[in-house]
Simulated scan of single mutants.
Amino acid sequence: EALLELLDDPTIASKRWVYRQYDHQVQANTVIPPGGADAAVVRLRPQQGEGSLAAANRGVAAVVDCPNRWVALDPERGGMAAVAEAARNLSCVGAEPLAVTDNLNFPSPETPTGYWQLALACRGLSAACSALDTPVTGGNVSLYNETRLPDGRMQPIHPTPVVGMVGLVHDLAQVRGQAWREAGDAIWLLGVPLEAGEAPADPRLSLAGSSYLERVHGAVTGRPPEIDLALERSVQGFLRQAIAKGLVRSAHDLSDGGLAVAAAECCIASGLGAHLEIPVSRTRVDRLLFAEGGARILVSVAPAQTVAWQEALDAAGVPAQCLGVVAAETELQIQQAAQPLLRLPVAQLAAQFEQAIPRRMGVDLPPTA
């Protein structure tokens, strides 16, 4: 029930009702259709004459991100997370993050809280851009975003420093999407691992400020998780190298909704199922399935690449867990100690995900082709 509730959240749900209404194949340069990957990818058309672009097979990837709940609760961590997630999304398609433009939407800076949010969010953006080598090349600022309530009080928006990031795809033949590719492929979690045993809770993962906490429990509270920028850099760098070497068949980052939502989105995009086994832990099951935090990416690896993949992981020293396999059966199964926690048909997941926005608009969206 919790997973279906999250997939019905318009922030998480499919945006197809929106993008199907405009031309997203301008000049046939769109490499991956909307909804197919973590970032948009557009072909760089070859240029006349000699030079590096004369016969290039390169592209540009772009994405926008902002975890507004996190920024409202901890502006510095939220600002860091916005940059880190944007870079992670570019890395998931195989693009090298290059630069940022920001759109700083905030309430009045003339209140102590408003000034604190603006100052700390900018500090977080700066720290993450420095750590990930993505300079801010431009942007704009919109302040005093507030609504006067009937009783005269001012209701401010969540501080929303939207990050737009662009990256370079060196070889369009190696672009990756979020859909599983083939049954039998191994599913790995890169980065911050799922918690196991009785160790103290990892501060880089939390239900605080999560979609689960807001959607299922109606609360936006707590301090968001710590942002491990060093791990972000190493995980993303490793993933881009693995994609370039053909070791990874799909990649999708864990963001809103955590592991369960990310796995469901990969199933929906592919039509294939997945069998996942999460570690035995004293950690709450909802934390394992729905906790959020940076530096986490789901990838699928073909059986033929198992040895090369393991050698690459050992050489890079990047934390990784094998969680299961892509399944021919069209359902998502998640279990712990061989006991089922979740079992849902992909068709049911897809219906919830695809119809969330159309249902609110009072229209029927035709199924995908």
Rank of each mutant, 00 (worst) to 15 (best):
A208N: 13
T101G: 05
V93M: 06
A95R: 02
D253L: 13
V42H: 12
A40L: 13
I268Q: 02
G258P: 07
A269N: 10
D38S: 09
H158L: 14
R240E: 06
E232W: 05
Q25M: 12
T330R: 15
G218S: 06
W180M: 14
N29F: 02
T221H: 07
A264Q: 01
Q155W: 10
P34C: 07
R287G: 00
A315W: 11
V41D: 11
Q352Y: 00
L190H: 12
I187T: 07
A291G: 06
A95M: 01
C129R: 11
Q348A: 08
L342T: 06
G164K: 09
L3D: 06
A269S: 14
A242L: 07
V175R: 12
V41Y: 13
L247T: 06
E198I: 02
P135Q: 07
P67C: 03
E182S: 15
G184D: 13
E265G: 00
Y115M: 09
V100T: 08
L239V: 12
Q236C: 15
Q236D: 15
G197R: 04
Q236S: 15
V64P: 00
P97K: 05
V60A: 08
L341G: 01
V326G: 05
N145S: 10
P203V: 03
L365K: 11
I157N: 10
S250T: 12
A302V: 11
V220I: 14
A316R: 08
L118I: 05
G246E: 10
V285H: 04
V162I: 15
D256C: 07
Y115A: 14
M154F: 13
Q25F: 15
L259I: 10
L332S: 02
H170E: 14
Y212Q: 01
Q241T: 13
I357Q: 14
D8F: 03
E50C: 08
